[in-house]
Design a binder for these strands. Structure first.
Lengths: 338, 338
DNA sequence: TTAATACAGGTCATATTCCGCCCGGAAATG
DNA sequence: CATTTCCGGGCGGAATATGACCTGTATTAA
C-alpha cells in the first residue's frame, strides 16, 4: 500500500462500500493527508468515475449510484449489432469520436454482455478481417486536412445538439477552408450527417444570415447567454445539400444518355442530379435513353463523368459543355499518341 | 493521462478488454517506455491482479479469465460512440443485422446510460438529420438484389465465426449469382468484411478447392460432425481481394500521371492499384509525376478513369490502352460535335 | 539448429510527481 | 450566526517514476 496507484484503488474500494465518508475518515484509513485524499478524488473523477461531494454538515464523498453499468440484457443479435456497429465505425472512422474511444467503449460493453454471448462475439472479432479500405465518398472534401478537434468531437456534437434543443446561441472558433481561424456567433438550428461529415446549420449573428459549418472545423464551443426564437420553416438537410449541388457559380447541365439508369446512378449521386427515362430526339430507337439533369461546379467534372460512363450521349445544355468535352477528347487522343 | 496512477489504471482497462497484448502495443497506447509497462504490470500483480505473461512468439500479457473489475459506466464520449455507431449502421444497413434489431439494441443501450448522458444523447438524436444517402462503394456488387437471409444474418456470422475458431466443417444453402440454390460443404477459414459485404473463405469439400462465399447468400447454416486441420498459410483477405483485383482476364496497366497522390487515390482505391512518386521520362520538370500500377478487368474503365482524372498522363503499358484511350477521345469529340 | 519474438528484470542518472502543510473560499446545516 | 465539510491554489522537499541500456530466458517458426 505504499504506491499511489494502490491507494487510489483502495479509495475507490472504500467508496464502493457505500454510504458517505468524510475526507478526515478517508485520510485516516488510507494513511495520507486530507489534501491528498482530495487529490485522489480528483483523479477518480478524471477517470470518469462519478464521485459526488456533499458539502456542509453530514456531508462527505460518495459514489454516484449508477457508476456501474447494469447488465445489458441483449440477445445474440442485439449484442452483435452493438459490437459490430462499433467495429465498423472504428474502421471507417466516421462520426464524432476517435477510434480509441470506440475501442474502450467496445471493451466496456463487451464486459457487461452475458458470458456466453461475449464468447461468441469474441469468435466473430477474431474471425473477421477488415480490409484496409478507406470509406469512399470523400470526393467533395479535402480529407488530407488534419482534424484538430477530433478529440473534442463528441463534446462539440453533444453541446451543439443541446444548444439547438434549448434554443441557445453558441460561439465557437472556426477554421475556414483557407485555414483562417475566427470566432463565430451562431443560433444553431440543426445538424446534418452527410458523407461521413457533420454539418451545423444556423443563423450567423454577425453576418445576419443562414450559414452552414463543418463540425470538424470547430473548436472551443461554448454557450452564450440568452435564447433565440427558432424560425418556423427550416430544413437543415436542404440547406446542407443545397450549396453542395447548387453552388453559387454553377452550371445547369442537361444531357441525354443511352444507358441503364442504375448504371448512371453509380456515378451521379441523387444529390447531384436527376435521372429519368426520355424519348430520344430522333425516333430511330425508341427507348434506352435517359434524360439527365445535373448541377455542377465544374464542367470538367461533367466531361470526365461522361467519359467514365462511356455510353452514347447528347449534350443539350450548356453549349460550353460541348467545348469542354471536345477539349477533353482531344487531350485524351493527344496523350494516347505519345 | 499524464499521471502514472491514471496510466496504471488505463493499463488495467486495456487488459480487461480481453485477449493478449504485447508490451510494445501497450507501451504505444499508454505513451510510455516498454520498461515502464513492465513496471506497471508488476504493480498490478502487487495489487493481486492476476496478469499472466505469455512468453515467446505470439505471447504477451493477459488478464486471468476470472478477474473482473466492475465495469465502469460509459463516459460521455463512449456513450455517444455506441449510440452513434448503431445509428450510422442503422442508416447504412451494412453488416449482419437488420435495422430493426439495431433499433431495439439502441433502445436498450440508451436505457442503461446514466440519466444525464441519456438526455444529452437524446438531444443529439433529435438534432441530427441523416441524409438519405446510400453508402457509396457498391460498384462491384449488384445491390438491387434482395437479401433473403438478412434476418438470420447475425446467426450466420456468429455460427461461422465459431466454426472457424473450433475448426469444424459446416454446411449451408448457397444461392449462386445465377439464382440457383445448392448446398455447400465447407471448412471455414476466415471471414472478410469488404465494401459493406461479408465473405467467407474456406475449403469446399465437394469441389476440393479454396472458395469464397458471400454471407448474405447463405442460409440454413449448420455444423457438420468432425473437425478439420486448418492449413498453415491462409490469407483470407488476399483470397477475397485477389479475385476482385486480379481477375482471370486482366490487364496490367502502368501509367505515369502528373497529379497529387491524394487526388489520384480518390478514383483508384488501394485494392486496385498502387500510386507512388516517380521521376518523369523526360527530365524537363523534375517532380509531380506519379507512377501508377493497376490491374483492371476492362481497359475502358481505365480510359474513363484517366479522363475523369483529367491530368497529364503517359501510358506505358499495355499498348492496347493507347488505342482504347484514343477511341474514347474520338467518341467524346464526335459526340460533342452533335 | 538458428533466428525471431516477447517476457523478465537489474541498474543508474534524471526528471517528474507526489505529499504534507499552509492557506482563503464556498456551500449546507442549525 | 457558527460549524462542518467540500474545494482547490501554492510551495518546497522527499519520494517516486521514467527511460536508456543491458543480460537472461521461454517459445515458436523455419
Amino acid at each position: 500500500m505504499t504506491r499511489p496507484t494502490a491507494r487510489v484503488l483502495a479509495l475507490l474500494e472504500l467508496l464502493q462500500a457505500g454510504g458517505t465518508r468524510t475526507v478526515v475518515d478517508l485520510a485516516e484509513r488510507l494513511g495520507v493527508d486530507q489534501r491528498t485524499v482530495r487529490r485522489y478524488v480528483e483523479q477518480l473523477r478524471e477517470m470518469d468515475i462519478p464521485v459526488d461531494g456533499v458539502r456542509g454538515r453530514y456531508g462527505g464523498y460518495r459514489l454516484a449510484r449508477h457508476y456501474r453499468m447494469p447488465p445489458l440484457m441483449l440477445n445474440d443479435e442485439e449484442g452483435l449489432a452493438v459490437v459490430w456497429a462499433l467495429l465498423v465505425n472504428q474502421h471507417a472512422h466516421s462520426g464524432p469520436v476517435t477510434p480509441l474511444v470506440m475501442e474502450t467503449a467496445t471493451a466496456k460493453v463487451r464486459r457487461v454482455l452475458p458470458a456466453a454471448l461475449a464468447r461468441r462475439i469474441d469468435a466473430v472479432l477474431r474471425a473477421v478481417d477488415f480490409t484496409g479500405e478507406r470509406r469512399p465518398g470523400a470526393e467533395d472534401h479535402d480529407d488530407a486536412e488534419a482534424r484538430p478537434g477530433a478529440d473534442e468531437g463528441a463534446q462539440t456534437l453533444l453541446g451543439l445538439a443541446e444548444a439547438a434543443r434549448d434554443q441557445r446561441p453558441v460561439a465557437f472558433a472556426y477554421r475556414t477552408r483557407q485555414g483562417h481561424a475566427a470566432t463565430r456567433h451562431v443560433q444553431p438550428h440543426g445538424i446534418v450527417a452527410y458523407r461521413n461529415l457533420l454539418y451545423l446549420t444556423g443563423f450567423d449573428a454577425d453576418r445576419q444570415a443562414q450559414r452552414t459549418y463543418r463540425l470538424d472545423r470547430m473548436a472551443d464551443l461554448r454557450l452564450l447567454p440568452g435564447t433565440f426564437e427558432a424560425p418556423a420553416n427550416i430544413d437543415p438537410v436542404a440547406q446542407v445539400l443545397g450549396p453542395l449541388s447548387a453552388a453559387p457559380s454553377r452550371y445547369d447541365v442537361s444531357v441525354l444518355i443511352r444507358a441503364d439508369p442504375a448504371y448512371v446512378r453509380r456515378w451521379i449521386p441523387e444529390t447531384l442530379g436527376s435521372v429519368a427515362p426520355a424519348s430520344p430526339p430522333d425516333a430511330a430507337d425508341g427507348h434506352d435513353w435517359l434524360q439527365v439533369f445535373l448541377r455542377a461546379e465544374r464542367l470538367e467534372w461533367v466531361a470526365g463523368t461522361l467519359a467514365m460512363l462511356d455510353r452514347p450521349f447528347i449534350i443539350q445544355q450548356p453549349e460550353t459543355l460541348k467545348t469542354v468535352v471536345l477539349a477533353l477528347g482531344r487531350r485524351l487522343a493527344e496523350r494516347s499518341a505519345q
